[in-house]
Design a protein around this nucleic acid. Structure first.
Lengths: 203, 203, 203, 203
DNA sequence: AATGAATGAGGCTTCATTCAT
DNA sequence: GATGAATGAAGCCTCATTCAT
């Protein structure tokens, strides 16, 4: 009576991870559906049981990345009340829990950035709205900074601009890390950079 | 040496600029040869009189970007003997002369990064060897830092790591700038960031 | 003979009717197996328990149509001995019992015709041999006409050609009926046409 | 300076005729783009220089058929003032100039009918609006009949219904002709039928 | 028997590149 | 040199059919 029972969500996730691996290896444009199928060890047609199109897979890859990032931010800012500590957690967790754990994902981030920064029609903007994501991100960090200013930990500064600086620093380090995962001790670099930045804004 | 050669070079450059405009607007993968031809107001077939392939155009776009960058670095480090001033020039010139002047180019940088960070066969590596470029870049900045240390301007630091930090900061700001050209006063942000960083390593 | 066989046949018929509905709505080529399955409220795979292939379903749809037509012919020519009445019954029954009762079927007739008139390999010819069907049809009507001539009801005419004319008239009216089920009073048109035709051949 | 000079319209027509040949041989659904390309002795991709899609080709095939028909009607109704003669011309020209001259086209008519009688979205309706075409056709013939009634040639009849009958007769004969191009003397059949019909409505 | 998940052959279409003019 | 018409390799996606449950 009943057909093969499959955990559709689990399989969808499997395919997504396979796609991420291939995307990060070959780049989105040069990835063929058959590559994803092979990576997932399924037939070409099976992919379409779980995704509408290649574009859809790329979009969901981004969603996945974004949700992970959200979770990390959430975790970081609720773990402690100390603004300084919050920023340090943000910096550290980004690398340890997000990038290092899914190193594959890292290389696609560039494609997210490239894709996300172009003007899109409404439909795509709902998925790839990097501008909005960064705006939210700045607000979140700005709030932490305001806290610190209120607590008397930080100097009076333009919190939004400073948030942009912190994000810039994180992204920059991310780029370096992607480029030279092995050669540079990025963890240390990241810490040094954060120390300098924190030092610069502390009262 | 004949006038024709000059014409050829001029036209090649024209096509290259047209290509850059389209690349930055639609992304490299989604740019068709016909788009470039239209943008350059020439026939589709004419492109092949000046370039071997689409890949070739993309490669030369990168070369152009790279040469511009080289020139800026050159200019910066020869303009003064003061290491601090050299770094400041590096930061400022990057934005004023490079990015701001060819805003179109900025959006393709992501594609360079995305493209450049994948493992390639020898032929491509000769063109898109980002790792090597960044390594050179780090060496150059490291040399400035060493100068500063010798001069007693900077503390004793791991110059290569610090170079990486400075590059990270610059790249990060670039990203922010691409994303929010209008909203954020990136020039100011970049200066603030540099001040903080310099402050952090000054003796 | 066991109840299962009855079930099987009933279900096969159900699927066939579902298929006919969808065929007539979307056309055979644009009908997917899943459409038929949905229309029949069964699973996609179940269809294959009752039919070998989509082609098979289409073939059996035709067979069904053909058997209905045969039955109508049979009914018409055995109901009375009067040749004129036989022809009138043929005309009328065609519409009342066949087309009007299964209006869905009507739209597929075009596909039967389109499919049936192409040269086919042996296998298909056994199912879709329209030429033969029409030849039989002509013979049957020709026999009625011959009867009428012998009885002195009809003039001496080329019975095969006249049979073709009668069939042409019926098919033509069918087409009009399919096209404008609602606007034209086809029943009346059909009667008028038949009256004219009969009048033309009566002695 | 100038590239290959091609009469685009001529080539488009060539491809269209090739497509019509293949359509009529294999049916639209079973015709592959490569079949059309081969029939036209061009490359697969070349088709797309002249048509948007397979659907487009089919649509334009229909347009072509329709324009031919229009021209025939025009020719018939302007050639004489005698209503009876007009109808006879309509009947005869349809076969001699239209069907017999482009026998290939004939077999696709079924597909036009099948395609044209389904409910379509606006876009397709603009191309395949068979209902409207037949309505126009009926009006045109109805006008001829009205003329004949005014002239006292025809009895007082429901002209629209009679127009439908005449069209039905023509279509029916067409069908027979498609089916048995060789066996039946359709020209004669068509004349006999028309004679009977005219006789039936003459005063 | 019934199901729908899985499959891959096959079709449509795109587009970089070629080449005759 | 310049052009765009022609091409076909290659990729995305569909869908009839299979088959494990």
């Amino acid at each position: 009576m009943s057909p093969k029972i499959v955990d559709k969500d689990a399989k969808r996730a499997e395919i997504l991870f396979a796609a991420m691996r291939v995307f990060s290896e070959k780049g989105v444009a040069k990835t063929k559906m058959i590559d994803i199928a092979n990576a997932a060890k399924i037939g070409k047609g099976t992919i379409y049981e779980y995704f509408h199109s290649k574009e859809d897979i790329f979009g969901q890859t981004f969603q996945h990345f974004y949700k992970d990032m959200q979770a990390i931010l959430e975790k970081a800012i609720t773990a402690t009340d100390d603004p300084v500590e919050k920023l340090r957690l943000l910096f550290n967790i980004s690398f340890s829990e997000f990038l290092e754990s899914s190193g594959d994902l890292a290389k696609i981030i560039m494609e997210f950035w490239a894709e996300g920064m172009r003007n899109k029609d409404e439909k795509i903007l709902g998925i790839f709205n990097l501008k909005q994501i960064y705006a939210e991100y700045r607000t979140l960090i700005s709030d932490i900074l305001k806290e610190g200013i209120q607590n008397g930990v930080f100097r009076e500064v333009d919190t939004i601009s400073l948030a942009a600086i912190l994000i810039a620093a994180m992204d920059g380090v991310t780029l370096q890390w992607i480029m030279e995962k092995d050669l540079l001790n990025i963890r240390q670099i990241s810490n040094v950079l954060l120390d300098i930045l924190l030092d610069g804004i502390k009262k």
